[in-house]
C-alpha cells in the first residue's frame, strides 16, 4: 500500500488526461512502429515459410539460418547492430521522413518478428489437410495457385489468433527502440522522469500501454469472431458484427489470455 500512497497522482492525472504534443507524437510513433513492423514481419515470415517448403534446397537452408540467428540472439543486440553497423541513411517515403534510428529500429523489429512469424505461418500451413492441396492439384491447379487460393486462406484462420498475440507483444516490444533514440511512448516517459525524478511517469506510461493492448484485445476478438462465423458458413450482418466487436464479455473471453 505504501507504494500507492507515495504515487504522485497529479503527474498520473496530467499524463492521462492532459497529454501534451510530445506525448501525442510518442503515442503515434509507438502505434505506427508496431503496425509497420508487424506487417513487415508477417510478410517476411510468409516468405520464409514458403522458402522453408521450397523444392530448392538453398532456400530451405537460408530460411533455417534466418530463424536460427534471429530467434537465437537478443532483439536488443539486433537493434544496436542494425543502428550502429548499418547506420541507415534518413529516407523519405510517401511524404514521411524516416530518421536513421527509426529505419534501424523498424528493420530490427520486422526482421526479428519475421523469424517468429515464420514458425507460426508454417504451423498454420501444416495444419491444413493434405487432401486440400491434392484436390486443388487434381483440378489442374499449379502449386502456387493452389497455395494462394486454397491453402493460405484456410491457414490464415489458424494463424490469426497467435498473430494477435504477436502484435500484442510487438506494441510493448517497440519500447526497446528507445535505446537508439526513437521518440516513442517509453522515451517520453523516460524523458519526463529524467527531468523531474518522479517515477510515476513510468506508471502513467504503463497505463497507456495497457490502453493499447486492451484496445487490441477487442479488435482481435472481433476479427476472430468474424472468422469463426464465416467458418461456420454464416455471414454476419453489420449490426451483429458491431455487437460482436463491442460485446465485452465475448471480447474478454476470447482475447484476454
Amino acid at each position: 500500500m505504501d507504494v500507492l500512497v507515495s504515487v504522485d497522482w497529479h503527474v498520473i492525472w496530467l499524463r492521462i488526461f492532459h497529454p501534451d504534443h510530445a506525448f501525442a507524437r510518442a503515442l503515434w510513433a509507438t502505434i505506427a512502429l508496431s503496425v509497420v513492423a508487424q506487417t513487415l514481419g508477417v510478410l517476411l515470415g510468409l516468405l520464409a515459410a514458403l522458402a522453408r517448403m521450397s523444392r530448392f534446397p538453398p532456400l530451405r537452408v537460408l530460411s533455417g539460418v534466418y530463424v536460427w540467428i534471429f530467434r537465437g540472439t537478443p532483439l536488443l543486440v539486433q537493434i544496436f547492430y542494425f543502428y550502429f553497423a548499418l547506420n541507415p541513411p534518413t529516407v523519405h517515403v510517401l511524404g514521411l521522413t524516416l530518421s536513421s534510428e527509426i529505419s534501424a529500429g523498424l528493420l530490427a523489429l520486422s526482421i526479428n518478428e519475421g523469424a517468429y512469424m515464420r514458425e507460426i505461418i508454417r504451423a498454420g500451413i501444416d495444419s491444413i489437410d493434405k487432401g486440400q492441396m491434392e484436390a486443388a492439384k487434381s483440378l489442374g491447379m499449379r502449386h502456387w495457385l493452389a497455395m494462394r487460393r486454397i491453402v493460405l486462406p484456410q491457414a490464415a484462420r489458424v494463424i490469426v489468433p497467435p498473430l494477435g498475440n504477436e502484435f500484442n507483444n510487438m506494441m510493448k516490444t517497440t519500447s526497446l527502440v528507445y535505446t537508439i533514440g526513437v521518440y516513442e511512448l517509453f522515451a517520453d516517459a523516460e524523458q519526463g522522469y529524467s527531468q523531474t525524478f518522479v517515477s510515476d511517469y513510468f506508471l502513467a506510461v504503463a497505463f497507456w500501454y495497457l490502453v493499447l493492448t486492451t484496445a487490441w484485445t477487442f479488435v482481435q476478438a472481433w476479427i476472430e469472431r468474424r472468422l469463426a462465423a464465416s467458418e461456420r458458413g454464416e455471414e454476419l450482418g453489420f449490426r451483429e458484427r458491431l455487437l460482436a466487436a463491442w460485446n465485452p464479455v465475448t471480447a474478454w473471453a476470447r482475447g484476454a489470455r
Binding site: Q132, K137, S138, G140
Partner: peptide, 26 residues
C-alpha cells in the same frame, strides 16, 4: 514439368474418399 502435369490433370477429374471440398468456399 509442373506446368504440363497440371495441364494434363485438367483432363482427369478425381473424386476423393474424404471429399476434400474447399471449406472456405460455398
Amino acid at each position: 514439368s509442373e506446368r504440363s502435369i497440371a495441364r494434363q490433370r485438367t483432363q482427369i477429374g478425381m473424386v476423393f474418399q474424404r471429399f476434400n471440398l474447399f471449406p472456405h468456399k460455398t
